[in-house]
């Protein structure tokens, strides 16, 4: 197995163009597991850890965060908790300290597992994935990025450069079910983002369909129902919360597997949707954001 070590982004893109079957390597927390368990034997590894610009984030002109593909969970937690609270909450649930030190958001997108914890919060805020090749770069809306179980919209010559994430314009929540209290792959997960500015609601569901998905119907229903409520200071009507939760569960297409049953996942999604909406909305009106 050959090991390529580009020192710059251009070098990396050139290497990928020349060897489209090279497997990118960021933190290695997915790749090395597959290698160790002999599940995968790529002919070439393309090490991206020597490219400085991948590991930084910046503010874009339109006020979004451009998160380099090599930004780790630890960076997200320590540096972006206020700007990207949903993603930071998800990052806190990932693996263990060692994994959060090495694992990257770009690697999570690269692996494109339906259980990847970054995906629901990125879906909930409508992030865009910036991908590049020697030919140029393009932006892929996050809900077009996941194309199948562990498959994404990258072409073989492309690499993920960054993910561009709108900063929070309202409370966000992330919640994940696992059968132990840490270091666990999501049995299912749910993210919600309230946008008080545009008066919209975003959602993301993990591990309950072949890909991470949004609950479009639930988002539409709730956005519509909230129209008259954003200015009111007070809790949501219970039947609205319940309706939202049921709509979220209907969006999911879970299966039975070794981690949980389809029925349990569906049930858990209603509970998580209900609770996270309540937490987010209560934070919204009780902290005075309603007046803003």
């Amino acid at each position: 197995m050959e090991f390529l070590t580009p020192e710059s982004w251009d070098e990396a893109l050139t290497a990928k163009a020349l060897s489209p079957d090279a497997l990118p390597l960021a933190g290695g927390t997915d790749v090395m597991v597959e290698l160790n368990l002999t599940a995968r034997r790529p002919p070439l590894l393309l090490d991206l850890t020597r490219i400085p610009e991948l590991t930084t984030w910046s503010l874009t002109d339109d006020g979004r965060i451009r998160l380099g593909a090599g930004v780790t969970y630890r960076q997200v937690i320590e540096e972006l908790n206020d700007e990207l609270p949903g993603l930071a909450m998800a990052a806190r649930t990932v693996g263990s300290p060692q994994i959060r030190n090495r694992g990257t958001v770009g690697g999570n997108l690269g692996a494109a597992s339906p259980a990847g914890d970054c995906h629901p919060p990125l879906l909930a805020v409508g992030a865009e994935v910036e991908v590049a090749s020697v030919v140029g770069s393009r932006l892929i809306p996050i809900d077009e990025f996941f194309t199948g179980v562990k498959r994404n919209a990258l072409s073989p010559e492309e690499l993920i450069a960054a993910v561009i994430v709108p900063t929070a314009r309202g409370p966000q929540q992330f919640s994940k079910i696992g059968t132990r209290n840490a270091m666990v792959i999501a049995v299912c997960s749910f993210a919600i983002a309230l946008d008080a500015h545009h008066q919209t609601v975003g959602t993301g569901i993990g591990s309950a369909a072949p890909t991470p998905i949004r609950a479009h119907g639930a988002e539409r229903m709730l956005t519509h129902a909230l129209k008259s409520l954003w200015q009111r200071r007070g809790p949501l009507p219970e039947d609205l919360v319940q309706q939202f939760a049921l709509n979220v569960a209907t969006a999911a297409k879970p299966i039975d597997d070794v981690r949980g049953t389809a029925a349990y996942r569906q049930h858990a999604l209603t509970v998580m949707a209900r609770r996270t909406l309540t937490w987010a909305w209560d934070e919204y009106w009780s902290t005075g954001e309603a007046a803003a």
Partner: peptide, 16 residues
Amino acid sequence: LREQPGGVSNTTHGEG
């Protein structure tokens, strides 16, 4: 959260 069922996965703030 570390004291709650579900731990840092943020599944309950005491509900249920």
